[in-house]
Computed example of a mutant assay.
Amino acid sequence: MKQFLFITDLDYTLVGDDQAMAKLNERLKVHRQTHHTKIVYSTGRSLYLYQKLTDEKTLLEPDVLICAVGTEIYYGGSNTPDSKWSDKLSEGWDKGLVVQISEVFPKLKLQPESEQRPFKVSYFLEEKTSGDFLSELESRLLEQGLDIQVIYSLGSSAHINSLSGVYEQGKDLEIPVLDILPRKANKGMAMTFVRENLEIDVAQTVACGDSGNDISLFADRKEKGIIVGNAKQELLEWHKTHPNENRYLAKANFATGIEEGLEYFGFL
């Protein structure tokens, strides 16, 4: 056993079964103490919603926190995002113009203000959408010289407030989510940036996820990847059509699936 870099999504990946998470947390805590393993959370949540989650769930303190779908990186419990990463993302990005162009698409409903970040514009969709819609939106943005990417995934309303008028409150619904980011920003690119800063070998890195916005953690990667058994359909379909021996599809759900994958790759 030796040091590794552990990167995981939170909602419906690490978080979802409190008992299983507590068991995995204990094993990771011991491994970090013994082998200096690094723990990184990579979440679509803003820092604000991440902090709300820590009030609700018992999470290990991460060495690094990646928020807002890879657009913000926080080290060592800081509330100030890494400036080098922010500087990198600012090239070819104009948030105001992104919002202005996107407003002409009536299917798009802005997410709460807490989820609109300096390098992320996020929407809900009233219904699941097609690739044609995504292509049209992306084309309109690229035509204006914006260096962007459009990421579609199915999220949960469980951790989102202020959904009145869009979704029925009090229910944990699977909802279509659209994030517009700088092309240089996503969970996968943020993972590479953090891994290189921490100087941890790619072979000693493993990432875990459950939905479409985690695909960049797995696409054409030498890092190991774990997809939990309860993964969303868009990720499962992508996994099936993009095989990679470095990726493992767990049989178990949530943290138990992560533990299964870590044992499969020999990290635990």
Rank of each mutant, 00 (worst) to 15 (best):
V30A: 02
N79L: 08
L134Y: 06
G145M: 01
G96D: 11
C67M: 09
T71W: 13
L97F: 03
S42K: 09
T58E: 13
K240P: 00
R221P: 06
T205F: 04
F133V: 02
Q116I: 04
G92C: 05
E234T: 09
L60Q: 00
G225R: 11
F133W: 08
T58M: 11
D94E: 12
W238L: 11
L198R: 01
K109R: 12
K184D: 05
I180Y: 06
I258Y: 00
Q19R: 12
I258G: 01
E196M: 00
F6S: 07
D94C: 00
F265K: 03
K232G: 02
F4Y: 09
D220R: 15
I226T: 05
I66D: 05
D147N: 05
Q19H: 14
T13Q: 04
G44P: 00
H159C: 11
I175F: 01
D82N: 09
L59I: 07
I73N: 03
L108K: 02
P112S: 12
D132E: 07
Y74H: 04
H159P: 04
V194R: 10
T241N: 02
T129D: 15
A20Y: 10
L154P: 09
I227H: 01
Y167A: 12
E245I: 14
I148K: 03
D17Y: 14
Q149D: 11
N186Q: 14
H31D: 11
M189W: 04
L142R: 14
I258K: 00
S86M: 02
L5N: 00
K222R: 15
L178N: 10
K187Q: 10
I215M: 12
K232Q: 14
E113F: 10
E168A: 12
N161F: 14
S211Q: 08
I226G: 01
L24G: 04
T80R: 07
A219I: 09
D214E: 06
G257C: 05
G165M: 07
N197A: 02
A255D: 04
G266L: 06
E127S: 13
D11E: 07
G77D: 03
R45N: 10
C208S: 07
Y152G: 01
L89C: 01
I148W: 02
N161C: 12
R247W: 13
D201T: 14
K232L: 14
H159K: 10
L49M: 10
A231C: 07
G76P: 07
P112Q: 11
L14A: 04
Q233M: 15
I7C: 12
D201S: 15
G131A: 13
P176A: 09
G76L: 03
Q51A: 12
P112G: 07
T58K: 09
L235W: 00
A250M: 02
Q100T: 03
L14P: 00
V194C: 07
N230W: 03
D55E: 12
K222P: 13
S135L: 13
V121G: 00
V166L: 14
L178Q: 06
I160Q: 02
L47N: 10
I148M: 08
S42M: 07
R32P: 05
P243N: 08
Y248M: 05
K171Y: 15
E61D: 11
I227L: 13
E127G: 09
I258M: 08
A158V: 15
K57E: 08
H35A: 11
I160T: 09
E263Q: 07
E115K: 10
G155L: 10
K109F: 12
P243K: 06
E196K: 09
D179M: 07
C67K: 11
